[in-house]
């Protein structure tokens, strides 16, 4: 018997469609993996789309200020799921301590150095990429320098104002700039998969998902997530994960996925923005918008 689709099944089917469309249309495809819940769900959806396989590399931009459990979770999951994992970083800024934690920049500039710049140059192949070696479990300098021109990203429209303007397939020009005012249309299930040389595409399969959808899907599919999202017994948990100097945990007693779902639906977070623990959003009226135009994810 046919079973009418529920809300999560519809979201899943559409995201799978977007992922398959990306894989069909782009040769140099990469998926960004921040190790957080959203991009881990995105990774899971890729395994759905490709029947257990992930036929493109995952890229993680390591700011070296990530909470250590994130890196441990990343490496373990990548080994277990046999992922082709690439890691990039802004070695120069880190060496010269051009960062917020080192006291030399403000938060936005730090994000720009360690995330936007690192991402842009790692994608283009100008900066070194490190590839996970599944035999040794360590990372090795990757010899490949081909630019990635299709970049799959787990942003959601409900996160923040500027993200609600995104298309599923969003062309960026050479400088990664986003021309918000002049985006081509998307009609029914047809997307802009042709693009001029010199431009690249951001692909957003999770655009329609909300924070609650993400947690309900994690519960439905039993997707592993970092324990940092749960109360560790001290009445605090992370709602959104980032670099430790700029991300603070929230007060919460949610000990598992179900608790989080209840908390989001009826509890104290029902009306509080998810990124409220992310300091860089507050530095300027449109901080994230400014960063996004420059290529921040």
């Amino acid at each position: 018997m046919y079973k009418e689709m529920n809300h999560l099944e519809r979201l899943e089917a559409f995201s799978v469609y977007i992922l398959r469309e990306s894989y069909r249309e782009f040769k140099n495809l990469v998926m960004l993996w921040s190790i957080g819940k959203d991009s881990t769900v995105l990774l899971w959806l890729a395994r759905k789309a490709f029947l257990g396989h992930v036929p493109f590399p995952l890229m993680h931009i390591d700011t070296e200020y990530k909470i250590p459990e994130m890196i441990e979770f990343r490496n373990r999951t990548a080994m277990e799921w046999k992922l082709n994992l690439l890691v990039g970083r802004n070695a120069k800024a880190l060496e010269e301590k051009q960062t917020y934690p080192a006291g030399k920049t403000d938060r936005l500039t730090c994000c720009r150095h360690l995330k936007s710049e690192a991402l842009k140059h790692t994608l283009s192949g100008e900066w070194t990429r490190y590839r996970l070696n599944h035999d040794s479990g360590g990372f090795e300098e990757d010899s490949g320098t081909e630019p990635y021109t299709g970049v799959i990203v787990g942003v959601r429209a409900d996160e923040e104002g500027s993200r609600s303007k995104e298309r599923y397939f969003s062309p960026r020009d050479k400088q990664s700039d986003w021309n918000v005012d002049d985006q081509p249309p998307e009609l029914w299930n047809q997307f802009n998969t042709d693009f001029a040389s010199g431009t690249h595409l951001r692909i957003h399969p999770l655009l329609d998902w909300t924070e609650l959808d993400i947690w309900e899907y994690i519960e439905k599919e039993s997707i592993p997530v970092i324990p940092l999202y749960f109360d560790n017994g001290k009445g605090k948990r992370y709602r959104s994960l980032g670099c430790y100097p700029c991300t603070s945990p929230v007060e919460s007693n949610a000990k598992n996925v179900r608790d989080i779902i209840n908390e989001l639906k009826t509890g104290k977070f029902a009306n509080i923005a998810e990124r409220s623990g992310r300091a860089q959003d507050k530095d300027d009226g449109g901080g994230l918008e400014t960063l996004r135009r420059e290529g921040y994810m």
């Binding site: 104002g161 609600s164 303007k165 918000v180």
Partner: peptide, 19 residues
């Protein structure tokens, strides 16, 4: 009108989704 430039022009440029 969540975007800066949108407010400055005073018109809705793109479609905004809200829940």
């Amino acid at each position: 009108d969540a975007l800066k430039n949108e407010q400055s022009q005073g018109i809705t440029i793109d479609m905004a989704r809200c829940f």
